[in-house]
């Protein structure tokens, strides 16, 4: 676990994630449930929710980014550089460009692109809103 980039510097406890959890809890229990102004209450809940996104991103972000890169390299048939983030950004731009140019309209490339894009959106939601993802997945259309 010490190989993770965000844990390279040894800091005292609590960890980054534990601090975020503490602030999210504070916002939910001590702020949101005690303020009477409902607009302020709503914003406190938004803030708490944003922190849970950051928590999940710290936990899964790196793994998901690497998986996304692996899929993109295969899909677009390119070789990796030593910068995972830059790779994903460049390839996603290229993918968006090709879709818009009509190069992914039909056939096996369309299917591969669609599968990759859907998987990527699902992974974004695992970070941004796993409850929503679960709700939509359980729905039978």
């Amino acid at each position: 676990m010490y190989a993770e980039p965000w844990e390279n510097n040894m800091q005292d406890q609590p960890t980054d994630r534990e601090l975020i959890t503490a602030v999210a809890h504070f916002l939910q229990t001590e702020i949101a449930s005690n303020v009477t102004d409902h607009r302020l209450k709503f914003r406190a809940l938004v803030a708490a929710n944003v922190l849970t996104i950051v928590e999940r991103e710290l936990e899964m972000g790196e793994t998901l980014l690497r998986a996304e890169r692996a899929r993109l390299l295969k899909l677009l048939d390119v070789t990796a550089s030593d910068d995972v983030y830059a790779d994903v950004e460049h390839m996603t731009r290229e993918l968006a460009r090709r879709i818009r140019a009509g190069q992914a309209d039909d056939g096996p490339f369309h299917d591969a692109v669609f599968a990759h894009v859907k998987q990527t959106v699902i992974e974004k939601l695992q970070v941004a809103n796993p409850k929503y993802l679960e709700r939509v997945r359980q729905e039978t259309r």
Binding site: R43, V46, V50, I53, I122, K124, A128, N129, Y132, V136
Partner: peptide, 23 residues
């Protein structure tokens, strides 16, 4: 505005909806 900021991460919800609708 925090609420506006958070909408950047809500976009994925609509992306999933679009993909489900056209799949």
């Amino acid at each position: 505005n925090l609420e506006f900021a958070s909408l950047g991460r809500r976009c994925a919800e609509l992306e999933l909806e679009v993909l489900r609708l056209i799949e």
